[in-house]
């Protein structure tokens, strides 16, 4: 297991609901339950799930933005707890974040140069002003913002969404981290430039041996971009495996539905009618397998007990009673 650069083990996060519950008791929101996830160096791992399923919470737990209710985060196989102060800054040196919205993640009052030079200075990667200039230019070049002299002194509002996201990526790289967590890095970008940013992330993971976690709701882009895919539903992991195998032969009915919901130009006939339904409330999640109220393969056992992990070989596994007891 120690080949994981960054690993989450049995992560659980319960938030306190703002209101609700009887007699003023605030029920917990079970945002994430028993999530285990590992990132390997030079590999892109995707975490896929619909809005509100807890994937951003997993990202923040791994980034130590807030503490887990239970479970632990391991960096290079060693458990870390670093939520504040010097330990938090030291952890930041290893694990960096890319935010979803490039229009909000750059301070409108600072130039591109400032955004890139600060992390270099903080983490002591520069010796002199000339050195700083050189490294900022190199960072801009790595994220393909050329000619660098032009971009260095631009204000964020002078850049497009894609350019801003490239600056944000360069800022994360300036720290020289070993792991990068990208929380929906392209969902706020125009469709036409998404591919460019994804290619860039892929190239960076490849070249500098970064462990990259790509969080998305778009399973098609995950298939294209990631080596491994883990699927999440209502705060629990439901299936994981090598990207191509998982998308070709999904083992869990939810993954199947997710794949069918992606538009496919080659599909001529309308997709089979699927059972309607909404994602469950995380304050009062369904008993047993959380997907059972919407599942086409539902069995009596599904509402009674949470399915254990069923290994399907070649690193693939799923949490599904149908896969555990094939009929």
């Amino acid at each position: 297991m120690s080949d994981f650069v960054l690993e989450g083990r049995d992560l659980t996060k319960h938030f306190t609901a703002a209101r609700g519950g009887r007699w003023g008791r605030r029920p917990p929101v079970r945002a994430v339950d028993d999530v285990s996830l590992g990132l390997r160096a030079g590999t892109v791992t995707a975490l896929v799930g619909e809005s509100g399923c807890g994937k951003s919470t997993v990202a923040r737990l791994l980034a130590q933005v807030y503490p887990a209710t239970s479970g632990e985060v391991l960096l290079h196989g060693e458990p870390v707890k670093a939520h504040r102060g010097a330990a938090f800054r030291a952890y930041r040196r290893q694990v960096q974040l890319i935010f979803q919205d490039p229009f909000a993640s750059l301070n409108p009052f600072h130039r591109v140069r400032y955004h890139l030079a600060r992390p270099l200075r903080i983490h002591g990667h520069v010796r002199s002003d000339a050195d700083e200039q050189e490294q900022v230019a190199e960072l801009l070049e790595r994220v393909s913002l050329t000619p660098v002299e032009q971009f260095m002194d631009k204000m964020p509002h002078e850049l497009s969404g894609g350019q801003r996201q490239r600056v944000a990526i360069a800022r994360a790289l300036a720290v020289q981290p070993v792991a990068l967590i990208a929380d929906e890095p392209v969902s706020m970008l125009d469709v036409s430039i998404r591919l460019g940013v994804l290619r860039l992330l892929e190239k960076l993971a490849d070249e500098s041996g970064l462990a990259l976690l790509y969080i998305t709701h778009d399973i098609a882009s995950a298939r294209y971009f990631a080596q491994d895919i883990t699927v999440m539903y209502a705060g629990r992991l439901i299936e994981s495996g090598e990207a191509e195998a998982l998308t070709q032969s999904p083992a869990h009915p939810y993954t199947r539905l997710l794949l069918e919901s992606a538009p496919d130009p080659d599909r001529v006939t309308a997709p089979e009618t699927v059972r309607l339904g909404e994602p469950p409330s995380l304050i009062d999640p369904p008993s047993g397998c959380r997907f059972h109220p919407r599942c086409p393969l539902v069995m009596p056992v599904c509402s009674e007990r949470v399915p254990e992990r069923t290994s399907l070989g070649e690193g693939r596994w799923t949490h599904c009673w149908a896969a555990a007891h094939p009929s």
Partner: peptide, 14 residues
């Protein structure tokens, strides 16, 4: 609570 403040914290600013 804005992203750029979170981002500054993430880059290790004091």
């Amino acid at each position: 609570r804005r992203d750029f403040v979170e981002a500054a914290r993430a880059s290790g600013e004091r």
